[in-house]
Amino acid sequence: MVKVELLKELDNGIRFYSMENESLKIVVVNMGCRIMEIHTPDASGNKSDVILGLKNIEDYADDPAYFGAIIGRVANRIGDARFTLNGKTYELYANNGKNHLHGGKEGFDKKIFDVTPLENGLRFHYFSKDGEEGYPGNLNLYVTYTLNENAFSIHYEADTDADTVVNFTNHLYFNLSNTLDKVNDHYLQINSDYIGCVDDTCLATGELLPVKDTPFDFNKRKRIGQDLEADHIQLKNAFGYDHSFVLNGTENQLTLEEPVSGRRLIISTTAPVVQVYTGNFLKDGCIGKAGRVYENREGVALETQLMPNAINTEENPSTILRKGDKFESNTKYVFEIM
């Protein structure tokens, strides 16, 4: 049984909800569909929060790390803040050097979504008008959060009245420890044979690199920190891991473990890639829930999505959503004890 509860509503339409069953408690807010807390037990049965976030809701208005938020219209970077679709070039807001990042100046992470409570979760809706942040087409995005025993799922649906570009994700940062030590000693396994390369601005170039015999091979479980400082141009370009892993299979493609707490997270997704980001820039002033400034590597983001910058690098871009078509994607997070 899932208990869905409205915790608080502010005058500006911001609403806080909790979803709770015997295994999990999740606190969300409809500003950006942000997941603010995920409480799950450790090996001793003690529950604690396993994601990073900010102390106050006001802090999220200027959140450089996108903690727990839905990202749109397009996650990650679009090169030179422009793309061409159907012969027309669209200019976007350059908010990451010369590139467009995570939806622009005011992406979906800052939008107020409508909310519909469900028996086992919450369904969110946002209507993005034609021209918003430079993107064509009126877009409807529906995001559904559900709980089922020890599993939390995110389902994305979108439609448009004109051809457009989309790439949705959730920017959760996980830290499964009880002490919020850096994630270097978390163990990660990824069913992937290739990563997408990035240039020195962290922009996806469209080139794929085989992971075999590189620091990017996580096909066998290993510590995140094992090869994090290795002498590899891709690690230097991104100041750590900030790369898309092309996923094999359709279930249990990722496993994250923290041996001291005994927690294990297993991720299954219909998305073709996961962006693994080791919090390489967290130290730039993010004051966390505990009231202290986060340091680099204190969380790892595992962002299931389409290939970044696909509109500029793929012959038939996977990120194009055509008029009359529907975009759908699902990601499931299962929390277990090792």
Rank of each mutant, 00 (worst) to 15 (best):
V2Q: 04
V2M: 06
K3C: 05
L6R: 12
L6E: 15
N12G: 04
Y17P: 06
Y17G: 10
E20K: 15
E20S: 14
N21Y: 07
N21L: 00
E22T: 11
L24G: 08
V27G: 07
V28P: 00
C33A: 13
H39C: 12
S44K: 15
G45N: 13
G45P: 08
L52W: 08
L52A: 05
K55V: 14
F67P: 06
I71C: 04
I71M: 03
N76T: 07
A81W: 00
R82N: 14
L85R: 00
K88L: 02
K88M: 10
T89C: 01
Y90T: 03
E91F: 09
N95E: 01
G97T: 02
K98P: 01
K98W: 05
N99M: 05
F108N: 02
D109F: 00
D109I: 04
I112K: 06
I112G: 02
D114L: 15
P117K: 00
F124L: 10
Y126A: 05
Y126C: 10
P136K: 13
L139N: 01
L147A: 03
N148M: 12
A151N: 08
F152I: 01
I154N: 05
E157Y: 07
D161Q: 09
D163G: 03
N167I: 05
N167P: 08
F168K: 01
H171P: 02
N175S: 13
L176D: 03
L176S: 03
S177I: 11
T179D: 12
D181K: 13
V183E: 07
L188Y: 01
I190A: 11
N191T: 11
N191M: 12
D193T: 13
Y194E: 00
Y194N: 07
Y194Q: 07
D199R: 05
D200K: 08
T201G: 04
T201H: 09
T201A: 11
A204N: 13
V211Q: 04
K212F: 11
D217T: 14
H232C: 07
I233P: 01
A238G: 09
F239A: 14
G240H: 01
F245C: 02
G249L: 12
G249T: 12
N252S: 04
L256Q: 07
I267M: 10
S268N: 11
P272Q: 03
G279V: 04
F281A: 08
K283I: 06
Y294W: 01
E295T: 11
R297W: 07
R297Y: 08
A301W: 00
Q305I: 03
L306N: 12
E314C: 00
E315I: 09
G324K: 08
F327M: 13
E336Q: 11
